[in-house]
Structures are given as structure tokens and as C-alpha cells.
Design a protein around this nucleic acid. Structure first.
Lengths: 205, 205
DNA sequence: AGACAAACCGACCCCCCGGTCGGTTTAAGT
DNA sequence: ACTTAAACCGACCGGGGGGTCGGTTTGTCT
């Protein structure tokens, strides 16, 4: 097989499995051997591709986590419809438990954020960046919604965006404790109530 | 000094400092020596009082964390007023950064929940119990609010309660990344908007 | 075919950390 | 004063995990 391809494939396998295991058991609670055993790879192979466990995890964040957050939570926002239902959809999608064995990558942000907070500043900052991107995109789509007459003019878009993020992260904590469809349904319902409080009312008057 | 008193004092010092350090650095990332050094105590002293690190942490939860959550988030709910502003107050209090060196115990639930989730079932269950107590009390006070005509009849109290908890936990993640008064203020404002959507409107009509 | 380097192997190092244990200090009871 | 046990000490053990390194295999280029 092509050497270059081989390298990329191995690195990709390492990252994909690493993300799964880190998310499952936590970064500090996962040893490299845990991951290596699962892939039948050796320490030597690992350190040939990555210079440290930390470097490895940063790769995972930048290659996989960023990508998944974009796909699940950012790109779907780019429509020209009323943003509120669209946001609701992305949240619902991102809280959906994985179909069969597929992982739910949107789920993991909260876990990693809390695990690295105050313990590894560098990794924390990469994670914060992801949240920031999400936030910025939420704000921009909310502001457009205001211009388009879907959202009331008095609404503080930054406030709404961080509130959405907070409720999502927190719901993720609750759901991972107790993966409960009822809980998720309730969350979406309450989110709808909240959104009702910020829509532009003049249309229906 | 009285032997019995000495024992209680040492155990209390261990628990108090342990809570601080565990919260600061995380349970798995804190060694017993970290705590012992801070108190100038020995391994022997520690294992005279606790049978393991896990047992120790459970003591901390049951003595200190439970107590603080009660004091901050549960007991203040027992008034006869409109529950919504009262809940808002407790949330605001619980998000308040510590005055001087005093710790903010309400802050730590989210961190511990995520750290132990799927990694230590026993400790997880103790933490979940605390959340459950909070939830039950929220539901009960919301239902009373319905009876007293402060909350609209169509409202799903369980849904509201878990939504409040989720948003609180998530906001805690965001705040610990970036302790920002503006963020906290925004959260309270959005919470008010949300509460407006569930109040009983007939009074003002 | 031979050379060369990338990919990989796995034994090993070393430190950290939870837990142990025999010994010492301290205080209460008689 | 003597005994007894609780409180405490700190050296030590053993396993785990991040990281190293000399060596082996595998693919590529000439």
C-alpha cells in the first residue's frame, strides 16, 4: 500500500478510536494502551505519529470535534427561514442518541470542557474556540432573524445565544446521566416556550 | 484536647480542604498527597479516618455538598411568595462568584457530575440524588405556584424544573471557563423572559 | 537487487499515586 | 505512674501509565 496513505489511515484510525474512548472514559482516565490495544497498535507506532498524548488529543479536537460541531450545529443554521425552528432542529439533532453504534459527537463538548477547565489551559482554549464559533454563528443568525421580522426587536441576541448554549450543555449533562427520551422531549418543549417569548408578535396581531 | 473532638476536627479539616482541592483540580487529577501536604497530615492519619479515597469523597459529598446545595438551592424555595422570582434569586446567588476566599459550593455539581459519569457508578448515584432532591423541590414549589395562581395552568412543572436545572448546569460550565459578570447577567435576563412565558396572565388582563 | 527511510514493534524506564504497615506520640482511664 | 488505645507518622510496596529507544518489517526509488 502507498506509504503516505498508510500514514494517513493509521493516524485517522488513532484519532477516531481515540475520540470514542476519550469521550467514553474521559481523557485523564484513558491510557494510551487502552486505545492502542483496541487498534492492535504499539506504543512505537503511536509516538511515530504524535509527539505526546496532549498533542494527539489536540489533533482529535481540531480534526474531528470541530468538524462534527460544524456539521451538527453550525452549518444547518445557514438557511433563509425563520431561525428559531432551525435552531430547535439542530438542538434536537444534537441531543439525539446515536443510531446503532454511531457516536453522537455533538454530545461531547460539555464533558471535555469541564474535564480540562483549569487543568489544561491549552486544550481548554481549543474547546472554548469551538463554543465561540457556535456562539458567533448563533448570534449572527439571530440578528438576521430580527431583520427579517421573525424575532422581536427588543431581544438581546448575545444573551439568547449564550442561553441556548448553556441550556444545551446542561441538558447534555442531565441526559448522559440518564438517557431519557422524556427529558429530551421536555427540553425541546420548554425551549419552544422560551422562543415564543422572543418572537416578533406583530404578524399574528 | 479531647480525643473525640480531635478526630472530628481532623476529619472536618480533611473534608473541607478535600472539597476545595477536588473541585479545583478534579478528583482523578488530585492525589491524596496534594491534600495531605496542604494540611501537614500523613498518609497514616488519612487512612486512620477513611478507608479509601472513594470513601473519603463520598463523605465529602454527603456532609458538605448536600448541605451546601440545600442551603443555596433548596431551602430558600420554602416561602409563600410567587416561586418564580424566588427561584431566580437562588440561581443568581448560586452563580455568584465567591466573596473573597469563600468557595462557591453551588458551583461544583456540574463538574463532579461529568467527571464521574460512566466512570464511577456509586459516586455518580450520590450526585444524581442531590440533583433529584433539587428537582423534586423545584417541581413541588412550581406546583404550588400553579395553585396560587402565579403560574399558568398549562405549564408542565417537571419540564420546567429540568429545564431550569439544565440551564443552570450549562451556565456553570460557561462561567467557569470565563467568569464574566455580563454572561451571568444575560442568563438571568433570559431566564426572566422564559419565566414570563409561563406566568399566569389572567391577573394583568 | 540493494539502499534507504518510513512505519511499526515491544521491552524498558521512571515517576506518580493509592494503599499498607510497623512504629511513635498523645491523651484518657484507673 | 502505668496501661491502653486512639491519633498520627512516613517509609515502603505495587501497579499503572506516559514516554524512550534500539531494533525489525515494509514499501519505494534507482
Amino acid at each position: 500500500m502507498d506509504k503516505n496513505l498508510k500514514k494517513r489511515e493509521t493516524m485517522h484510525r488513532l484519532c477516531a478510536t481515540g475520540l470514542e474512548v476519550f469521550h467514553e472514559k474521559g481523557y485523564y482516565n484513558t491510557s494510551l494502551d487502552d486505545i492502542l490495544k483496541e487498534l492492535s497498535l504499539s506504543k512505537g507506532a503511536f509516538y511515530h505519529h504524535f509527539k505526546s498524548k496532549e498533542d494527539y488529543f489536540i489533533s482529535i479536537i481540531q480534526n474531528l470535534v470541530v468538524q462534527k460541531v460544524y456539521a451538527l450545529l453550525v452549518e444547518p443554521l445557514n438557511t433563509h427561514e425563520n431561525p428559531l425552528p432551525v435552531i430547535l432542529d439542530t438542538l434536537e439533532q444534537a441531543l439525539e442518541p446515536g443510531k446503532q453504534n454511531e457516536m453522537v459527537y455533538g454530545f461531547m463538548l460539555n464533558d471535555f470542557l469541564t474535564e480540562f477547565n483549569k487543568r489544561n489551559a491549552e486544550i481548554s482554549s481549543y474547546l472554548k474556540d469551538i463554543i465561540k464559533v457556535w456562539e458567533v454563528n448563533l448570534v449572527s443568525v439571530l440578528k438576521k432573524g430580527k431583520v427579517d421580522g421573525h424575532i422581536a426587536r427588543h431581544v438581546d441576541c448575545e444573551g439568547v445565544a449564550s442561553y441556548i448554549i448553556a441550556s444545551y450543555l446542561g441538558m447534555r449533562t442531565l441526559l448522559s446521566e440518564n438517557n431519557n427520551r422524556q427529558l429530551k422531549y421536555n427540553y425541546i418543549q420548554q425551549m419552544k416556550l422560551y422562543f415564543n417569548a422572543i418572537v416578533e408578535k406583530r404578524v399574528e396581531a
